[in-house]
Design a protein around this nucleic acid. Sequence first.
DNA 1: TATGAATGAGGTTTCATTCAT
DNA 2: GATGAATGAAACCTCATTCAT
Lengths: 195, 195, 195, 195
Amino acid sequence: MSKPREEKYQLILDAATEAFAEYGYFSCQVSKIARLAGVADGTIYLYFKNKEDILVSLFSERMGQFIQRIRHDVILCQTTQERLSTIVQTHLRYMQENRSLAVVTQIEVRQSDPQIREAISGPLREYFQLIEQVLAEGIEKQEIVLSDIKVGRQMFFGTLDAVISDWVISKKPRSLVGVEDTVIDLIRGAFKIKD
Amino acid sequence: MSKPREEKYQLILDAATEAFAEYGYFSCQVSKIARLAGVADGTIYLYFKNKEDILVSLFSERMGQFIQRIRHDVILCQTTQERLSTIVQTHLRYMQENRSLAVVTQIEVRQSDPQIREAISGPLREYFQLIEQVLAEGIEKQEIVLSDIKVGRQMFFGTLDAVISDWVISKKPRSLVGVEDTVIDLIRGAFKIKD
Amino acid sequence: MSKPREEKYQLILDAATEAFAEYGYFSCQVSKIARLAGVADGTIYLYFKNKEDILVSLFSERMGQFIQRIRHDVILCQTTQERLSTIVQTHLRYMQENRSLAVVTQIEVRQSDPQIREAISGPLREYFQLIEQVLAEGIEKQEIVLSDIKVGRQMFFGTLDAVISDWVISKKPRSLVGVEDTVIDLIRGAFKIKD
Amino acid sequence: MSKPREEKYQLILDAATEAFAEYGYFSCQVSKIARLAGVADGTIYLYFKNKEDILVSLFSERMGQFIQRIRHDVILCQTTQERLSTIVQTHLRYMQENRSLAVVTQIEVRQSDPQIREAISGPLREYFQLIEQVLAEGIEKQEIVLSDIKVGRQMFFGTLDAVISDWVISKKPRSLVGVEDTVIDLIRGAFKIKD
DNA sequence: TATGAATGAGGTTTCATTCAT
DNA sequence: GATGAATGAAACCTCATTCAT
């Protein structure tokens, strides 16, 4: 009995991801999500408290999954350089495979509505902490040079974010995978990682 | 005769910047802007076609000013390193002095409502081109090492963007000026600029 | 399942007829129609695209019904004189029984807002064609004398229209049925119909 | 000092006639009239109490002039037949020469807004009375046969009204003068005027 | 007298949410 | 659980009218 419930929950979340990506959170009506999910408008409210709850759930579900994947890949690495390269690769590839999620992330990370931003900040903060941990460990082991961990993370995340932002906006994007090496190279230079 | 017209135009734009920054574009009613500007609701529409036009005008006006300032500062520089450092400094200081503009910029650049994004993209693209010009010249003069100009610009802008984004979201932000040196240092490393 | 939908559609159309008749199209707010129909404002928009669509639908629905009735009555007639008399009678009686429709018809047929007029013209043109057909047949069979069919129709319709217009405007109107004979008599004279 | 006042008053009335004819009373903004008249919006209110007053003034001024012209032409006639023919001719020709007035008349005669209708009814009633006088005299002198004066007037006016209505709506209208003879012929038949 | 920028009441329409079926 | 018709609050925008210049 709980299986179909979970299924429809995910179905709606998938639909919402597509719909938010295409129209933006505010310009996307709940009825559009319902139609895309193949359910009635009212059904949405059996699974979510309100429209905002859809967005927030979408974030913790999908971003949570994303972070878990990255965390899993990072654990297998030996050096800081490997860890950073892995994050770059996994981040870009994951977003490339989940374009709509990438779009939603781009849009909604910066939502100014304080309530929404607060609700969203959880998973993102978790990701930031993961990056900062890697950086801290790198400094400690003298594998990288960095005078301010937070700024280091901002550079690291900001670069990936900007790359994806351009990719998302661009109508004819080149593959994200193609820029991996350049990104990694720039980051290695920034953190003074030796060859 | 045209002075007071221009004055009120700027007054409304200032009010809109504050209001959009506080509530976000969609959650901010036109009446809020009007009240903040000390004018009647209808007066807004003597100066702007509609709500979207306020946002778009805000962008081209204020971002245009911002880019002009950066362009002016960059012209005075001799080396690529100086140019990049100048952009970092001017960018961060300008945003620090215009927090509300920074908020709006951070938020609305990524608005996915396609119409709005299109309208906004102009000034931003201009800024991107400026950065890319500096990078291209740096490569040519062998002052920097960079295999892909676009990715270089993404790293450069993305870093600044992430720094400001954190600063804007943070309730008790440290001064942006304090991170200038770290940012410049990271970028010099990324572009392999010698001391 | 479709019954209640049709019912409410007609309910709103009835309310709109009353409301437009009392206040005129422009001076009548949608909320007035809603209140009269006993539904919420928003409900109106589940059945009609917008305010104008209400008026247009009202016209094609009600006028269509009106024309059908006349067409039905005309078919049973043998002579042109009978046909013309029947149209006069049915027209006047129908309007007398549907005063609000008469008011709306009188008022809105001539709306100069070009968009509205265009939308409304369909059913009216159909009625004009019916009259002109009867006249053409009458001429052919030499039952009437008329040098210009269009002008003949204008006289025929214009007379009925003016009679109803006066009746509608008048606060204490005499019955429309009372003038039937005079109208028929005038028209018989105009078209030189022998006794 | 009173001359230019009168001039501008007429100027605005002319502009209003054009503007009402093109857009209809409700869809025509006061500012449009002002622009057409070449005066400021506020100036309108030095000459007219409000928008409605423009329409009402337009009516009594222009229709008054129209009726006066008809009255003048009718006085010169000897027989009822001449009088009726003269009214038909003058009516059609006047409207043909003043198309915008014709349009406004068509539209606004039927305004359902009770206040407006009341204000307009004056000049129109005067015209109706003139027609009814002619008919009454015709009956008395046994020049025409008519059992109900009011219905007779309705037929007479309604016919002219419908002719003009079609002419006004039609994009490529035939000249109104061309139908004069047919109209007169029909009316002579209706009133049983001998040759 | 003339101006036209400013006003602000009020209208149409949208859409998140509810609830009877 | 599922539906989707109905709700009604609230937003954007228009435009007749005013009034300081």
